[in-house]
Amino acid sequence: MKKTPLSVCVYCGSRFGSSPAYLAAAQALGREIGRRGWRMVYGGGNVGLMGATADAAMAAGAEAVGVIPELLVNLEVGHRGLTELHVVPTMHERKKLMAELADVFVALPGGIGTFEELFEVWTWRHLGYHDQPIGLLNVDGFYDPLLAFMAHTQQAGFVDQHQQSMLTVHIDPAALLDQLAAEASRATQSEDFSRI
């Protein structure tokens, strides 16, 4: 029986950001996904870190599956060179389908859309909608202020250590994927996104 490749949902910026390190890390993550024979799932864009990660993954042999809302296709930011491109009516349907297609989640540097996706899938895990690993690729300390703020929310009594432990943080793409794959093999895979 053929083993199903691990499916990595990548959240990242539609811009490149101000540091060359962000692009380098995105490309390194894409290459690692391809080198392992895994599949990348993401928001379907051909711009910024989104497009760069998908291009690097496909160049290294990965399937790349995009999920994009009609509005963004109409703005011509959909990546037409992907293995699959799903066009859906709304952002809500986009995020739900991306989650359904994923075994693990990884957030690279990005803006408010990346943060929103990260916190949503983190909240879903906390509430028991899934038990899939979530990782942060902390490129050049990009997420250090967020992690400090999350420590503050724990001290303030709004977040507990168990919730914090649901997030795996690493600076190296290969090491992060190794850890997430190990966690995925232990996960119950009890996701029920139909309830979202």
Results as ranks from 00 to 15, higher is better:
Pro89Tyr: 02
Met98Tyr: 05
Ala21Gln: 14
Glu93Leu: 15
Arg35Leu: 10
Gly37Gln: 10
Val73Asp: 03
Ala59Lys: 07
Tyr22Lys: 01
Ala62Met: 08
Ala25Thr: 03
Cys12Pro: 06
Cys12His: 05
Ala28Thr: 05
Ser14Pro: 05
Met98Asn: 03
Ile68Asp: 11
Ala25Ile: 00
Gly45Asn: 12
His79Asp: 07
Asn46Ser: 15
Leu85His: 02
Glu93Pro: 02
Arg39Ile: 15
Gly66Tyr: 09
Trp38Val: 10
Val47Ile: 15
Trp38Arg: 04
Tyr42Gly: 02
Met58Cys: 01
Gly61Met: 08
Arg94Asn: 08
Met91Ile: 15
Lys95Tyr: 01
Ala64Glu: 05
Val47Phe: 06
Trp38Cys: 15
Pro89Glu: 12
Asn46Lys: 14
Leu97Pro: 01
Ala28Gln: 15
Tyr22Gln: 07
Ser19Asn: 13
Met40Glu: 13
Glu93Trp: 12
Arg36Lys: 08
Thr53Leu: 03
Gly34Asp: 04
Val10Cys: 02
Phe16Arg: 01
Ala24Pro: 09
Met91Trp: 12
Val87Gly: 09
Met50Gly: 00
Glu100Tyr: 05
Glu84Asn: 09
Leu71Gln: 12
Arg31Thr: 11
Lys96Pro: 01
Ile33Thr: 06
Gly51Lys: 01
Gly37Thr: 13
Gly44Ala: 07
Val104Leu: 15
Met58Ala: 06
Ala54Ile: 01
His92Met: 02
Glu63Gly: 09
Val77Ile: 15
Leu97Lys: 12
Met40Cys: 14
Asp55Tyr: 00
Gly34Thr: 11
Gln27His: 03
Gly78Lys: 05
Leu29Glu: 01
Leu72Gly: 08
Arg39Lys: 12
Tyr11Thr: 07
Gly44Asn: 03
Asp103Trp: 10
Arg36Val: 10
Ala60Pro: 10
Cys12Ser: 12
Val104Gly: 08
Gly78His: 12
Tyr42Ser: 02
